[in-house]
Design a protein around this nucleic acid. Structure first.
Lengths: 186, 186
DNA sequence: ATTATATTAGAACAAACGTTCTAATGTCAA
DNA sequence: TTGACATTAGAACGTTTGTTCTAATATAAT
């Protein structure tokens, strides 16, 4: 296990960077100056960084994922791999964390929109739905995921599956949340 | 802006929790004991926590998303909402961060698998593909995303789109990475 | 073996840390 | 107004922080 990996696992276990004292046993040293020396090396290598007060802060690569271009473009050669942009999944997917929830998808009503049973959807509450949004709606006491459509002032729900007919709500139509992202894990 | 939101934004800006001194201006206090008092309250409310040495650590809700059950089950009433499980997107989606990359999908060859053009895929390098995996493959110098199939010892690539025919590699077939997750943002 | 260099141990240091005490102030009900 | 309580300011405390120095040791080349 490299020093880098040890620090990363400490960071994820404690949700903060280790102090020099905590790095002593972690990096198998017996003096803080040895740690200081090792830390300087890691900083030179771009593994970690320091803030203006000397505290260690995680480098972006500790939390971010490298983003490449298109599938067709494929992977760059190791030489140019440094040019790759990085992205934080959390920041990318979550706007208002307080209002964001994750739901597991049941059924096949949105299969033509590429949302399959078992997928996870990130939904956000408290937003005003626009026509064309995918929403979580409460219809007659039950929850469903459908397209939210508004045509000629009339609101209805439409599945992304030809087997299902549009739903024209009889009573009230409560839009509980709006689907912001779909996540499928293999 | 509530104290909670101030701390969260500090945490995301500095990638660590603030010290008591840093909370002074943040919470508009002029003494550390006032901060200590406020921190105790926040801890009582479950907003933040402390480790065994008194340092502030972010509560799970600072980074995690609440997970509900099925779409059909919908949202629990506010009373039982505390029961909701939480999940960290990073931990959920990323196994080996060093080997993980993100690619933007071009084309419609995997549309029947629910992967559309413009989606992002999380791929991991250095894994041995199994039959049925979705992979990024280099065929004759170009990259494509296809199903990896192995039948009777023979390896070929198959699109999830009836318009495309299976690819039986003439020369070599290089599996560059395996698709671990699909992410679509609306 | 000898030299030069790189690394580590150990100690000392000022600065910053969270904690805790007293005193002052603010808040609210009676 | 009075009294009870909650909150804040300010100061002092012991501890831990990162830094920096010297001395000892390891490493590698000559």
């Amino acid at each position: 296990m490299s020093p880098r990996e040890k620090i990363i696992s400490f960071y994820h276990a404690h949700r903060r960077m280790p102090s020099y004292s905590e790095l002593l046993p972690l990096l198998n040293y017996h003096s803080k100056s040895a740690v200081a020396y090792a830390v300087k090396k890691l900083i030179r290598e771009g593994v970690i960084s320091k803030d203006d007060q000397g505290r260690l802060i995680p480098n972006t690569t500790l939390e971010e994922v490298r983003v490449l271009g298109l599938v067709e473009a494929g992977f760059p050669s190791p030489a140019e791999e440094e040019l790759a942009d990085t992205m934080n999944l959390d920041e990318y997917l979550i706007g208002n964390r307080e209002a964001t929830f994750m739901l597991k998808v049941k059924g096949d009503s949105m299969i033509d929109a590429g949302i399959n049973e078992g997928d996870m959807v990130l939904v956000e509450r408290g937003l005003e739905p626009k026509s064309g949004d995918i929403v979580i709606a409460e219809v007659d006491g039950a929850f469903t995921m459908k397209y939210y459509r508004k045509k000629a002032g009339r609101v209805y729900l439409e599945a992304a599956n030809k087997c299902y007919k549009p739903i024209y709500p009889k009573n009230e139509l409560r839009i509980t949340a709006i689907v912001k992202a779909v996540i499928r894990k293999y």
